[in-house]
């Protein structure tokens, strides 16, 4: 079973995404901040990361940078899933190695699942 890490500080949105992805057959781990996300990734390397940008403390860009510095995760697909979506935010995420950038309000959870299935196969 493929493991997905969701990093999202809004617990309501996190709960909904986790429910949907679990139903779609993935093993889901969740974190609301960078420290928890790092601990989870160190303990059990995920196959996929769904990453919010605006987080308390270290933001999503900081986490993405750490992910790409982690030798076990240089190729792990990371979708930045945020509502902060100015051109400069998208450019920054791409530059740091994000696989894709999705604006939460522009997608339904089904579309997100489809997207992840497309990437993980």
């Amino acid at each position: 079973m493929k493991k997905i890490l969701i990093v999202e500080d809004d617990t309501f949105l996190q709960g909904l995404s986790a429910t949907k992805l679990t139903k779609a057959g993935y093993q889901v781990m969740t974190a609301t901040n960078a420290d928890d996300a790092t601990k989870l990734m160190d303990a059990d390397t995920p196959d996929f990361v769904l990453l919010d940008i605006m987080l308390p403390g270290t933001d999503g860009y900081g986490i993405l940078k750490k992910i790409r510095e982690n030798t076990k995760m240089t190729k792990t697909p990371v979708i930045v899933f945020s509502n902060l979506a100015e051109d400069k935010d998208i450019a920054k995420a791409k530059e740091l190695g994000a696989t894709d950038f999705m604006i939460k309000s522009n997608f339904t959870l089904d579309e997100l699942v489809e997207k992840i299935k497309g990437i993980l196969g």
Partner: peptide, 24 residues
């Protein structure tokens, strides 16, 4: 504007996802 849009989109996403789950 960017920050307000972010806050608005967060609530709108929650509503969108929930309604879609009802519809589905």
């Amino acid at each position: 504007i960017s920050i307000s849009a972010h806050q608005l989109r967060t609530s709108l996403s929650a509503v969108k996802w929930i309604l879609k789950m009802f519809i589905d």
